[in-house]
Amino acid sequence: MWTNLFLLLLPINSVAYENNELGLQYEILEEIREMKSNEKHLEERVMKLEYANKENVKEIQQLRNEISTCRNAMEAGKSRRQEYRGSVSFTAYLSHSVTNIVHNTPVVYDTVLLNDGAAYDPLTGVFTAPLTGVYLFSVSSGSKNLPGSNLTQYDVFTRLVVDGVHKLSAVAESKNVYDDEQGSTTAILPIQKGSRVWVFHQITGGHSLFAEDGERVTSFAGALLYETESIAHLIG
Protein backbone atom coordinates (compact mmCIF):
# COMPACT_ATOMS: atom_id res chain seq x y z
CA MET A 1 0.00 0.00 0.00
CA TRP A 2 2.76 2.43 0.84
CA THR A 3 4.41 1.73 -2.44
CA ASN A 4 1.33 2.62 -4.37
CA LEU A 5 0.91 5.83 -2.38
CA PHE A 6 4.50 6.86 -3.11
CA LEU A 7 3.96 6.26 -6.79
CA LEU A 8 0.85 8.43 -6.68
CA LEU A 9 2.63 11.32 -4.91
CA LEU A 10 5.74 11.20 -7.07
CA PRO A 11 4.30 13.17 -10.04
CA ILE A 12 2.97 15.81 -7.64
CA ASN A 13 6.38 16.28 -6.01
CA SER A 14 8.05 16.37 -9.41
CA VAL A 15 5.73 19.12 -10.61
CA ALA A 16 6.33 21.13 -7.45
CA TYR A 17 10.08 20.80 -7.89
CA GLU A 18 9.88 21.92 -11.48
CA ASN A 19 7.75 24.89 -10.45
CA ASN A 20 10.26 25.87 -7.79
CA GLU A 21 13.10 25.59 -10.28
CA LEU A 22 11.24 27.74 -12.80
CA GLY A 23 10.53 30.31 -10.10
CA LEU A 24 14.17 30.41 -9.14
CA GLN A 25 15.22 30.83 -12.76
CA TYR A 26 12.72 33.66 -13.15
CA GLU A 27 14.08 35.37 -10.07
CA ILE A 28 17.60 34.99 -11.41
CA LEU A 29 16.54 36.45 -14.78
CA GLU A 30 14.90 39.37 -13.00
CA GLU A 31 18.04 39.95 -10.99
CA ILE A 32 20.10 39.83 -14.20
CA ARG A 33 17.74 42.30 -15.88
CA GLU A 34 17.98 44.62 -12.86
CA MET A 35 21.76 44.31 -12.81
CA LYS A 36 21.91 45.14 -16.53
CA SER A 37 19.65 48.13 -15.94
CA ASN A 38 21.87 49.25 -13.06
CA GLU A 39 24.91 48.70 -15.23
CA LYS A 40 23.40 50.87 -17.95
CA HIS A 41 22.62 53.62 -15.46
CA LEU A 42 26.11 53.37 -14.05
CA GLU A 43 27.62 53.61 -17.55
CA GLU A 44 25.50 56.68 -18.23
CA ARG A 45 26.67 58.26 -14.98
CA VAL A 46 30.27 57.44 -15.82
CA MET A 47 29.86 59.02 -19.26
CA LYS A 48 28.32 62.13 -17.71
CA LEU A 49 31.11 62.35 -15.14
CA GLU A 50 33.75 61.89 -17.83
CA TYR A 51 32.16 64.66 -19.94
CA ALA A 52 31.92 66.93 -16.91
CA ASN A 53 35.52 66.11 -16.06
CA LYS A 54 36.62 67.07 -19.58
CA GLU A 55 34.73 70.36 -19.28
CA ASN A 56 36.30 70.94 -15.87
CA VAL A 57 39.74 70.22 -17.31
CA LYS A 58 39.10 72.76 -20.10
CA GLU A 59 37.88 75.35 -17.62
CA ILE A 60 40.84 74.71 -15.32
CA GLN A 61 43.25 75.09 -18.24
CA GLN A 62 41.53 78.31 -19.31
CA LEU A 63 41.84 79.68 -15.78
CA ARG A 64 45.49 78.69 -15.70
CA ASN A 65 46.05 80.52 -19.00
CA GLU A 66 44.34 83.63 -17.65
CA ILE A 67 46.46 83.47 -14.49
CA SER A 68 49.59 83.12 -16.63
CA THR A 69 48.57 86.12 -18.74
CA CYS A 70 47.97 88.22 -15.62
CA ARG A 71 51.32 87.16 -14.17
CA ASN A 72 53.12 88.05 -17.40
CA ALA A 73 51.42 91.46 -17.48
CA MET A 74 52.37 92.10 -13.86
CA GLU A 75 55.96 91.04 -14.51
CA ALA A 76 56.13 93.31 -17.57
CA GLY A 77 54.75 96.22 -15.55
CA LYS A 78 57.18 95.44 -12.75
CA SER A 79 60.09 95.39 -15.19
CA ARG A 80 59.07 98.75 -16.66
CA ARG A 81 58.76 100.28 -13.21
CA GLN A 82 62.12 98.86 -12.16
CA GLU A 83 63.70 100.26 -15.31
CA TYR A 84 62.32 103.76 -14.81
CA ARG A 85 61.68 103.55 -11.05
CA GLY A 86 58.14 104.83 -11.64
CA SER A 87 59.25 108.33 -12.65
CA VAL A 88 60.40 110.17 -15.76
CA SER A 89 61.39 113.84 -15.61
CA PHE A 90 63.84 116.31 -17.08
CA THR A 91 64.83 119.98 -17.03
CA ALA A 92 67.19 121.60 -19.52
CA TYR A 93 68.02 125.16 -20.54
CA LEU A 94 69.75 126.99 -23.37
CA SER A 95 73.10 128.35 -22.17
CA HIS A 96 73.82 130.69 -25.08
CA SER A 97 72.07 132.61 -27.82
CA VAL A 98 71.64 130.85 -31.14
CA THR A 99 71.47 132.33 -34.63
CA ASN A 100 70.59 131.04 -38.08
CA ILE A 101 67.75 128.95 -36.67
CA VAL A 102 66.08 126.70 -39.23
CA HIS A 103 62.28 126.73 -39.14
CA ASN A 104 60.57 123.68 -37.61
CA THR A 105 63.80 122.20 -36.22
CA PRO A 106 64.13 121.47 -32.49
CA VAL A 107 65.73 124.01 -30.19
CA VAL A 108 68.62 122.19 -28.52
CA TYR A 109 68.54 122.98 -24.80
CA ASP A 110 72.14 122.00 -24.19
CA THR A 111 72.52 122.16 -20.41
CA VAL A 112 70.69 119.49 -18.40
CA LEU A 113 69.74 119.96 -14.76
CA LEU A 114 67.70 116.76 -14.44
CA ASN A 115 67.21 113.77 -16.72
CA ASP A 116 65.56 111.00 -14.70
CA GLY A 117 64.97 108.11 -17.08
CA ALA A 118 67.37 109.56 -19.71
CA ALA A 119 64.45 110.29 -22.05
CA TYR A 120 65.64 113.79 -23.00
CA ASP A 121 68.49 114.01 -25.52
CA PRO A 122 70.62 117.16 -25.00
CA LEU A 123 72.26 116.63 -28.40
CA THR A 124 69.00 116.89 -30.36
CA GLY A 125 66.67 118.73 -27.95
CA VAL A 126 64.08 115.95 -28.31
CA PHE A 127 62.27 114.14 -25.49
CA THR A 128 61.15 110.59 -26.35
CA ALA A 129 58.42 109.18 -24.10
CA PRO A 130 59.54 105.86 -22.55
CA LEU A 131 56.05 105.09 -21.22
CA THR A 132 52.49 105.77 -22.30
CA GLY A 133 50.86 108.19 -19.90
CA VAL A 134 50.01 111.76 -19.00
CA TYR A 135 52.93 114.18 -18.99
CA LEU A 136 53.46 117.78 -17.93
CA PHE A 137 55.66 120.04 -20.10
CA SER A 138 56.87 123.56 -19.50
CA VAL A 139 58.51 125.90 -22.01
CA SER A 140 60.07 129.30 -21.22
CA SER A 141 61.54 131.56 -23.89
CA GLY A 142 63.58 134.71 -23.22
CA SER A 143 63.89 137.81 -25.39
CA LYS A 144 66.33 140.72 -25.05
CA ASN A 145 67.05 143.68 -27.30
CA LEU A 146 70.81 144.04 -27.32
CA PRO A 147 72.33 146.86 -29.43
CA GLY A 148 75.27 145.83 -31.60
CA SER A 149 74.61 142.11 -31.15
CA ASN A 150 74.12 139.68 -34.00
CA LEU A 151 70.62 138.81 -32.82
CA THR A 152 68.29 139.54 -35.69
CA GLN A 153 64.99 139.10 -33.88
CA TYR A 154 63.64 140.34 -30.59
CA ASP A 155 60.24 138.76 -31.12
CA VAL A 156 60.48 135.18 -29.91
CA PHE A 157 57.76 132.73 -30.91
CA THR A 158 58.38 129.16 -29.72
CA ARG A 159 56.06 126.21 -30.17
CA LEU A 160 55.70 122.99 -28.19
CA VAL A 161 55.05 120.08 -30.57
CA VAL A 162 54.36 116.35 -30.21
CA ASP A 163 55.43 114.28 -33.19
CA GLY A 164 55.43 117.49 -35.20
CA VAL A 165 51.91 118.54 -34.15
CA HIS A 166 51.67 122.01 -32.56
CA LYS A 167 50.24 121.99 -29.04
CA LEU A 168 50.98 125.33 -27.29
CA SER A 169 53.17 128.39 -27.78
CA ALA A 170 55.37 130.73 -25.73
CA VAL A 171 55.87 134.30 -26.99
CA ALA A 172 58.21 137.07 -25.80
CA GLU A 173 58.85 140.52 -27.37
CA SER A 174 61.60 142.91 -26.30
CA LYS A 175 60.66 146.31 -27.76
CA ASN A 176 63.21 148.50 -25.98
CA VAL A 177 66.96 148.18 -25.69
CA TYR A 178 68.06 145.92 -22.82
CA ASP A 179 64.49 144.98 -22.01
CA ASP A 180 64.27 141.45 -20.60
CA GLU A 181 61.12 139.64 -21.61
CA GLN A 182 60.08 136.06 -21.06
CA GLY A 183 57.16 134.07 -22.41
CA SER A 184 56.15 130.68 -21.04
CA THR A 185 53.55 127.96 -21.43
CA THR A 186 52.63 124.81 -19.57
CA ALA A 187 50.83 121.79 -20.99
CA ILE A 188 49.48 118.54 -19.55
CA LEU A 189 49.22 116.08 -22.42
CA PRO A 190 48.49 112.40 -23.07
CA ILE A 191 51.58 110.95 -24.72
CA GLN A 192 52.02 107.58 -26.40
CA LYS A 193 55.14 105.55 -25.70
CA GLY A 194 57.74 106.39 -28.34
CA SER A 195 56.27 109.81 -29.19
CA ARG A 196 58.76 112.63 -29.61
CA VAL A 197 58.30 116.04 -27.99
CA TRP A 198 60.34 119.15 -28.75
CA VAL A 199 60.26 122.95 -29.07
CA PHE A 200 60.94 124.91 -32.23
CA HIS A 201 61.31 128.64 -32.93
CA GLN A 202 58.91 129.89 -35.54
CA ILE A 203 60.93 132.40 -37.59
CA THR A 204 58.81 135.42 -38.42
CA GLY A 205 61.30 138.06 -39.45
CA GLY A 206 64.39 136.63 -37.76
CA HIS A 207 66.52 133.55 -37.13
CA SER A 208 67.81 134.06 -33.59
CA LEU A 209 66.96 133.03 -30.04
CA PHE A 210 68.30 134.83 -26.98
CA ALA A 211 69.82 132.97 -24.02
CA GLU A 212 72.60 133.36 -21.44
CA ASP A 213 74.04 130.86 -19.00
CA GLY A 214 73.81 133.34 -16.16
CA GLU A 215 70.14 134.21 -16.70
CA ARG A 216 68.80 130.83 -17.88
CA VAL A 217 65.50 132.24 -19.12
CA THR A 218 65.09 129.85 -22.07
CA SER A 219 64.24 126.37 -20.83
CA PHE A 220 62.35 123.15 -21.52
CA ALA A 221 61.09 120.74 -18.83
CA GLY A 222 58.79 117.75 -18.56
CA ALA A 223 57.63 115.00 -16.20
CA LEU A 224 55.47 111.88 -16.25
CA LEU A 225 52.44 112.45 -14.01
CA TYR A 226 51.04 108.93 -14.26
CA GLU A 227 51.23 105.92 -16.54
CA THR A 228 48.24 104.58 -18.52
CA GLU A 229 47.66 101.56 -20.72
CA SER A 230 46.15 103.71 -23.45
CA ILE A 231 45.57 107.40 -24.15
CA ALA A 232 42.65 107.00 -26.57
CA HIS A 233 40.05 107.62 -23.85
CA LEU A 234 41.92 110.76 -22.70
CA ILE A 235 41.80 112.58 -26.02
CA GLY A 236 38.80 114.68 -26.90
Rank of each mutant, 00 (worst) to 15 (best):
S138I: 07
G125M: 07
F137Y: 11
R159L: 15
R196P: 07
T185N: 15
V165D: 04
V112M: 09
T158D: 14
T124G: 07
T186N: 09
L123N: 12
L168H: 10
F200T: 02
G164H: 12
F200R: 05
F200A: 03
I188W: 09
S195L: 06
L160S: 06
P147Y: 14
I203Q: 14
S184Q: 14
V177L: 10
E173W: 13
V171C: 11
L146H: 03
T132N: 08
T186M: 05
T128F: 00
T152N: 15
G183A: 06
Q192I: 01
T152D: 14
L113I: 06
T204K: 12
V126W: 03
H201C: 12
Y135C: 00
L131I: 07
V108E: 08
Y109E: 04
Q192L: 06
R159N: 15
V165E: 07
R159M: 15
P190K: 14
L146Q: 04
P122A: 01
V134K: 10
Y120Q: 00
F157D: 11
L123R: 11
F200C: 05
Y109S: 03
S138K: 08
T185S: 15
T132H: 07
N150R: 12
A118K: 15
V156G: 01
Q192K: 07
T186Y: 02
A119T: 00
S140H: 13
D180V: 06
N115I: 02
G148D: 02
Q202A: 15
G194M: 01
R159K: 15
G117L: 07
Y178I: 04
